[in-house]
């Protein structure tokens, strides 16, 4: 009898717990203590600087030891200009995605972070209500930034017509180009006109293959982020996800790039390069050595490309030129 009563009490306690969990799950509250509701832009006492929490991705093997110096210098300028201080929250780039997911899902308060389609996905965070709607705040509080870009550029940051992030200044126009080993290019006798088509690039790779090039590092093939440069396809949710805006068409439209004829033709070239050995057989697992490369396709050709790539190739002279129109 005594055992039965204990079991009954345990069952009742268990049911009560389950009911409580169910109620918690039905809650409409976003959870978390500090919700990023945008109301904390100014403290009540405006003489006290507001602390801006800024999560940054650090591209290094470890957090730089002198980051505090950078923070101090930032604050020296920012305090004077907008009566605010910046608290940097550095996270290594390999961990940034996971950490920001946790911060957003926890509803933890923060003011700034890096977001893009390829890291800390912008659209996903908007869906999770992790970012504040700043569509009306931008023209009012950041008129110079608002005026800096055309509406066509701001539209890239719109999700269902609203803006949740401010665009940072980077390379916006994507131009397809090539980086070639200068010595091999000059020996081949080819001209820049020959590279307007992929047949010309293939001919150059064949020349490298048959004339003493290090066969493990001739080329890497296409830059996977180069959809916009090579095809005029602006990806919506990352280069590997079906669904791009074809800006090369007369009327931009959303298409599935994997069903597009020009994309499939380009893939055939890649397969051909792989079969002929221009792309090494262990490309998926081996590390490609840029310093020993001969022919690279680039999706961000720019005037300074030659100097940069010569440096990347450890002083081996490079020649870089565009091979197609620019897209934005």
């Amino acid at each position: 009898m005594r055992g039965r009563i204990t079991k009954k009490k345990a069952a009742a306690a268990f049911c009560l717990c389950m009911f409580c969990f169910l109620l918690a799950g039905c809650s409409g509250d976003k959870g978390g203590v500090a919700i990023n509701d945008g109301s904390g832009n100014l403290t009540d006492d405006e003489s006290q600087p507001y602390e801006i929490d800024y999560w940054i991705a650090v591209e290094a093997a470890g957090i730089p030891k002198d980051l505090s110096l950078v923070e101090a210098e930032i604050n020296r300028i920012v305090t004077k200009k907008i009566n605010a201080t910046v608290k940097l929250h550095p996270v290594l780039v390999g961990d940034y995605e996971n950490r920001m997911q946790l911060v957003v899902n926890a509803g933890d308060k923060f003011d700034l972070c890096f977001t893009s389609p390829w890291m800390n996905n912008y659209a996903k965070n908007v869906r999770l209500e992790g970012f504040w709607d700043i569509t009306d705040l931008l023209p009012e509080y950041a008129p110079k930034t608002w005026a800096l870009y055309d509406e066509r550029i701001w539209s890239a940051a719109r999700v269902e017509g609203r803006i949740y992030g401010s665009i940072n200044r980077q390379i916006m126009a994507r131009t397809p180009g090539v980086t070639l080993d200068r010595a091999m290019y000059e020996a081949s006798g080819m001209t820049q006109e020959d590279f307007k088509t992929l047949d010309g690039f293939t001919e150059f790779l064949a020349y490298c293959y048959n004339n003493g090039a290090d066969r493990a590092n001739i080329t890497q093939g296409y830059d996977p982020q180069g959809l916009i440069a090579f095809f005029g396809f602006d990806d919506i949710n990352g280069a590997s996800c079906p669904g791009v805006v074809d800006v090369s068409a007369d009327k931009p439209a959303v298409i599935n790039q994997f069903e597009s004829e020009k994309f499939r033709n380009a893939l055939k070239y890649s397969v051909d390069w792989y079969k002929k050995g221009y792309i090494p057989a262990d490309a998926l697992t081996a590390a490609f050595d840029f310093s020993k490369s001969y022919g690279l396709l680039s999706s961000t050709w720019k005037p300074s490309q030659e100097g940069e790539d010569t440096l990347r190739r450890k002083g081996r002279a490079s020649i870089c030129f565009p091979i197609g129109p620019s897209y934005m």
Binding site: G62, L92, D95, N217, F288, S291, K314
Partner: peptide
């Protein structure tokens, strides 16, 4: 973190546009 960094450089050498060659 060291291992993650090396793997990140190898996977994103083009995206990061850095001067580090993954083969190094």
């Amino acid at each position: 973190q060291l291992v993650n960094y090396v793997q990140y450089v190898q996977q994103n050498a083009v995206v990061s546009g850095g001067m580090i060659s993954a083969a190094d």
